[in-house]
Design a protein around this nucleic acid. Structure first.
Lengths: 237, 237
DNA sequence: CAGGATCAGATTGTCTGACGATCAGCCGTT
DNA sequence: AACGGCTGATCGTCAGACAATCTGATCCTG
């Protein structure tokens, strides 16, 4: 008895404005890095009130599509990582979700990414990985872990990029973003960072050899060891 | 020369309001399904203007935390799936991202979920899967595919739930949401739905036997077959 | 008494005007 | 040339107003 009557949805003005802006970005009219028209210009262009424009901008801002720099500029975010904030929000809201779940998801994603990378990588990707490993090795003595952590991130993102799968890439980025603090504690553990460099070399070698199974296993071993160190080092509960 | 001076960030009022509301949800003061205070009540409670309250609500709304039903009610969403809209947005914005990427990610997530489910499932989860399979079998004749698709979704979510990993669960939910339309085309292919029922039974059996490898393989075979049917059936490019 | 129409109140959706704070760029002074 | 201050533009925020819509109660009619 389902009647072919679709529900009437009263689209609100700020939703329409947000859709229009997203469409402008989607078709390339607004490039990443561009500055948006001012609120008042948008008000005039769309023939809506400033409230509606502002509420639309808040939606886009909270989704990571745009960034609102104080003072007077609206800039489209350098890259669209809408998943990051969502994942963080999920951890805040869903009490049942534990950080360990994120780590497990990370392991799943990265292991399979390594396997796919072994099959699909190009020489450029290997170069990226080598550069990242080099920088990790060079920053072992740095008291601040930031350089090391960034290089580590760069390596794993290079693996993700080698898969050619953008969603996988963005997902890994989001997961990484959430557990970044945790990785810092690992860096401080004596010897842990040095071992990570060796493990990365092994992963890189397996990918370069085009051996998916070995790449997956090396990645799994690496992540398992890191997680063990986190537990020993007293990561958060 | 890095001085230990952290940058001063001027938190905007609407962000503060949004944070407070999220905190209220996080600590249980606001339960899912509850109705929020009216905008004017929030205005009075927080001593801020209505604009700030509204912009905060727009942020939460666009993240899927609350839902704004027209007329006069604000309700906290039944469940927090902030990942769904983000994933959809990613497809709209990042031109390089293709639907195939999402399908590949789905395959990764579901195969590993099946393996984990084989190790961690409880009898209740098997019951859920059985119910879903039953309903799929019963709705094979239904011209509309909705009932079948919903039951299919229920099966896969039961697998995800059996892993005990909430992030995995939410991620699978988000991915499913994006490719739902695609699954519809598969349902219309003659014989495809019936085969899906059989494949689900095989997956369920492997999980019940506690055999991770077999569960993973059965899931992989199922998804590969579905994707093949999608291509034959002329899914979108 | 049942059922529908009608009205009042509340709430959101939207626009407008206003004011302070902040930032970028220009200009004058030293 | 370097520094400090001025000016205009823009955002952040608030207050007020009005239309549209929903909820619930009341009233009318059969």
């Amino acid at each position: 008895m389902t009647m072919p009557i679709s529900p009437i949805s009263r689209r609100k003005t700020y939703e329409l404005v947000a859709d229009r802006l997203v469409a402008l970005i989607g078709d390339g009219s607004l490039q990443p890095g561009d500055q948006l028209p001012t609120e008042r210009e948008l008000t005039g262009s769309f023939h809506v009130g400033r409230s509606s424009v502002r509420e639309a901008l808040r939606m886009l801002e909270s989704q990571g599509v745009i960034r609102s720099v104080n003072g007077g500029v609206f800039v489209i975010a350098d890259a669209a990582y809408p998943l990051n904030s969502s994942l963080r929000l999920l951890l805040t809201l869903d009490e049942q979700t534990r950080l360990h779940d994120v780590i497990e998801l990370r392991s799943i994603l990265e292991c399979e990414a390594a396997a796919l990378a072994a099959e699909r990588h190009s020489p450029d990707h290997l170069t990226l990985m080598d550069g990242a490993i080099e920088e990790m090795a060079n920053s072992l003595e740095d008291p601040e872990g930031d350089v090391f952590i960034d290089a580590d991130l760069r390596f794993h993102l290079a693996v993700a990029e080698a898969t050619g799968n953008r969603v996988l890439f963005h997902s890994m980025h989001a997961v990484r973003d959430v557990i970044r603090r945790m990785l810092m504690t690992v860096f401080r553990m004596p010897g842990s960072a040095a071992r990570a460099v060796e493990e990365h070399r092994a992963i890189r070698a397996a990918i370069a050899d085009g051996d998916p199974t070995r790449a997956r296993d090396e990645m799994r071993a690496h992540l398992a060891r890191v997680e063990l160190d986190v537990q020993k080092g007293g990561g958060d509960g």
